[in-house]
């Protein structure tokens, strides 16, 4: 069942006097409980598409349908609320808040998502999530004391602690070695299934495709092909 779809999305940038079209009418849809990978060469527009889909930048044209509404037409505040409550993000770098402990990173996300859980329930949720990403023992550690793999696991935990509907991941394994990359992708795959969320992941690493359900290949701003 499609929970999220992108319809005829265009994106142009003005570079000096030249207008460059990065996305030339992209259509795709994401299925609930599935990991979809966006692949393609550098400059194919995959990261731009992901950031537009995630509401991090506007499209020049087209529709982004989520829960039967065109969120591309939302104003800044409406988009912020969607990002806070319905979406989760994992970036290439973990982008953790350097002065918050692991536990506090997750608490902040629950705060931002305006959770209805009480303090005790929040704590239980955090403990459960840290157990899932196998970082219960690093609860009070700051990001500076974590390894690259651990940081990405915290980033994943932060991205899904508020139980979003969609998880966006932009090259989440780009800065990790092969072993840790596999661990991170396994975790994303597992959480997508167990929490019944929908994941869109951008990757250029073909080895990671073993962990996805659906593949969309992009070239020169258009979808070249789809596969399972």
């Amino acid at each position: 069942m499609s929970i999220f779809s992108i319809k005829d999305v265009h994106k142009s940038f003005t570079n000096g006097e030249v207008e460059e079209e990065i996305l030339k009418g992209v259509n795709l849809s994401l299925q609930r409980g599935e990991v979809t990978a966006l692949i393609g060469a550098s400059g194919s527009g995959k990261s731009t598409l992901l950031t537009i889909a995630a509401g991090l930048q506007p499209a020049s044209n087209g529709q982004i349908i989520f829960k039967n509404e065109n969120i591309a037409a939302y104003n800044q505040e409406q988009t912020r609320k969607i990002r806070a409550k319905e979406f989760g993000f994992v970036f290439q770098s973990s982008h953790l808040v350097p002065f918050l402990t692991i536990e506090e990173q997750l608490l902040l996300m629950l705060d931002v998502a305006e959770t209805t859980l009480n303090k005790q329930e929040q704590q239980q949720e955090i403990n459960k999530m840290l157990k899932t990403v196998d970082l219960e023992h690093r609860k009070h550690a700051y990001p500076s004391s974590l390894s690259g793999g651990e940081k990405q696991r915290v980033a994943i935990a932060r991205a899904i602690i508020h139980q979003p509907k969609i998880l966006f991941a932009d090259e989440p394994t780009a800065n990790l070695d092969s072993k840790r990359s596999k661990e991170v992708m396994e975790l994303i795959q597992e959480l997508t299934k167990t929490l019944d969320i929908t994941t869109l992941v951008v990757t250029h690493d073909e080895e990671m495709l073993a962990y996805v359900d659906h593949i969309i290949k992009m070239k020169d701003g258009i979808v070249m092909g789809q596969g399972v």
Binding site: K85, H95, M109
Partner: peptide, 13 residues
């Protein structure tokens, strides 16, 4: 700026 950006990205007002 990077921190503010990331906080905004995750939905901080």
């Amino acid at each position: 700026i990077g921190l503010y950006g990331i906080l905004k990205a995750i939905g901080v007002k």
